[in-house]
């Protein structure tokens, strides 16, 4: 997945300036930067969920397998590019129905197929053992960390090629955070992952490549190790060492 000269506007305000970024397949890409730097906005243009905000528009191009994202049917795009949000957002339905939601809206109707898909997604998300006996219980009965893993499982149920995560661990304790990170490692062989995070250690732990955003610009994009050992831009260095601002 690739963005080319991407500019993004909220009405008059330009939130992204000329972003060129190549997201490698089956790798984990982390986006870091201070609040309001545009990293989440960028993430949310990749599956065009930003379009739900009035006044949003962009110039430039986003390509998925070389095909423009902007000219595709948006629902089929979102099936290919899944998303997990900052605050876990399980639907007020049972655990089973949460996972089955994506496959259902994408046309899967047979109960047997749905059961197979739900179990597979939950197993991949390492949640199966914890919830297999209460699939019909409301999802809201799960703990915060479990809810977020449920949301990842729900996104994975439609087998997206790319999974976008917008600060998925910001409300979780360290143990739940580590479980999610392990989960990312276990799905990255089949899925391209882009994660926005405020936690630099998290970016350092999980990401193969890291991009640093500031004031709507992509300041530096490189191997994660380089970003944290020897960044080439002073702004990046100041940010990662905590000398920012």
């Amino acid at each position: 997945m690739r963005s080319v000269n991407l500019n993004f506007f909220y009405s008059q305000f330009q939130a992204l300036h000329d972003i060129n970024l190549e997201i490698e397949s089956n790798k984990i890409t982390a986006l870091i930067g201070p609040s309001g730097c545009g990293k989440s906005t960028f993430l949310r243009t990749l599956n065009r969920i930003n379009e739900t905000i009035r006044g949003a528009n962009y110039t430039g191009e986003i390509l998925l397998d070389g095909v423009s994202v902007l000219s595709q049917d948006v629902t089929s795009l979102r099936r290919r590019v899944g998303m997990v949000f900052q605050k876990s957002n399980p639907f007020p339905k049972s655990i089973f129905d949460n996972i089955a939601y994506g496959p259902k809206v994408n046309g899967m109707t047979a109960k047997a197929d749905l059961e197979v898909t739900v179990e597979r997604s939950l197993r991949r998300s390492a949640l199966w053992e914890e919830v297999k006996d209460k699939l019909q219980k409301p999802a809201s009965a799960l703990s915060g960390g479990q809810q977020q893993r449920l949301c990842i499982a729900r996104a994975m149920a439609v087998e997206p090629e790319v999974l976008l995560l917008d600060e998925p661990c910001s409300a979780l304790d360290p143990i739940a955070t580590l479980k999610i990170e392990e989960l990312l490692f276990s799905i990255k062989d089949s899925t391209t992952i882009v994660i926005v995070t405020h936690n630099m250690q998290q970016a350092a732990r999980v990401a193969d490549k890291t991009g640093f955003f500031m004031l709507g610009k992509l300041v530096e994009f490189d191997r994660t190790e380089t970003i944290f050992k020897n960044p080439s831009k002073k702004e990046t260095e100041d940010y990662v060492t905590g000398r920012f601002g």
């Binding site: 350092a204 944290f228 050992k229 020897n230 960044p231 260095e237 990662v240 060492t241």
Partner: peptide
């Protein structure tokens, strides 16, 4: 402090 970049070096 779990230092990074120039602090780590």
């Amino acid at each position: 402090q779990q230092p990074v970049a120039r602090d780590l070096r």
